[in-house]
Computed example of a mutant assay.
Amino acid sequence: MAKKKEITKQDIVGFYIDYYLENNKQPESVYKFAKHYGFEEPFFYATFSSFEQIEKTYFSSIFEQTMSLLEKSEEFSGYDARTKLLSFYFTYFEMLTANRSFTLALLQQDKNKLKSLAKLSDFRKHFINFYNELEIERIDLKQEKLVEIQEKSMSQMAWFQLLLTLKFWMDDTSLSFEKTDIYIEKSVNTSFDLMDIAPLKSLIDFGKFMWKEKVSFKM
Rank of each mutant, 00 (worst) to 15 (best):
F48Q: 01
P42S: 05
N24Q: 05
F51H: 01
F39Q: 07
A105Q: 13
L69F: 05
E64R: 06
E40P: 07
E64S: 10
Q53G: 00
K35H: 08
E94G: 12
N24S: 14
L134P: 05
I12V: 15
P27H: 08
I7Q: 03
E71V: 14
I54Y: 00
S87D: 00
A98S: 05
G78W: 06
R100N: 03
E71C: 12
E144R: 10
E133K: 13
N132S: 13
S68M: 04
K9T: 14
S77H: 07
Y31D: 08
T8L: 11
Y58Q: 00
S61P: 11
K5H: 08
E6P: 09
D122S: 09
D80G: 15
L21N: 07
E75N: 09
K9E: 12
Y58R: 02
T91C: 06
I136K: 01
L141G: 02
E40K: 04
E137Q: 11
M67T: 06
K9P: 14
V30F: 04
L104A: 04
G14V: 14
I136M: 02
L70E: 06
E28I: 15
F90D: 00
M95E: 10
R138G: 15
G38A: 02
P27D: 11
L117W: 08
R124A: 04
T66P: 03
K25P: 09
A46P: 10
L134G: 12
F48H: 02
Y79H: 07
K111G: 14
P42H: 05
A46S: 08
Y92E: 00
Y31W: 07
Y31T: 13
E94M: 13
I128Y: 05
L85R: 03
F123K: 03
E71P: 11
Y92A: 01
Y19E: 15
F15K: 03
T66L: 04
D110R: 10
E64W: 07
E71G: 08
Y37N: 01
E41G: 06
I139G: 13
N99W: 00
D110L: 12
E71K: 02
T91R: 04
S116Q: 11
L86A: 01
E22M: 14
A46L: 11
E22N: 04
E41I: 10
F123V: 09
I54F: 01
S77P: 11
G14F: 08
L85F: 05
S73E: 10
T83D: 08
S61K: 06
K111F: 15
I17Q: 02
E133Q: 13
F63M: 00
D18P: 13
S77C: 04
A118K: 09
Q109E: 12
F39R: 07
Q65N: 10
K56N: 07
F130K: 03
Y31F: 06
Y89L: 07
N132A: 14
N23K: 13
Q26T: 14
S50E: 01
T97C: 02
F102G: 00
E22W: 15
K142Y: 12
F33K: 06
K5I: 15
A105H: 11
T57I: 12
L141Y: 12
R124S: 07
V13L: 13
L96R: 04
L70S: 06
L120W: 06
S50C: 03
E6T: 12
F93Q: 00
L70K: 01
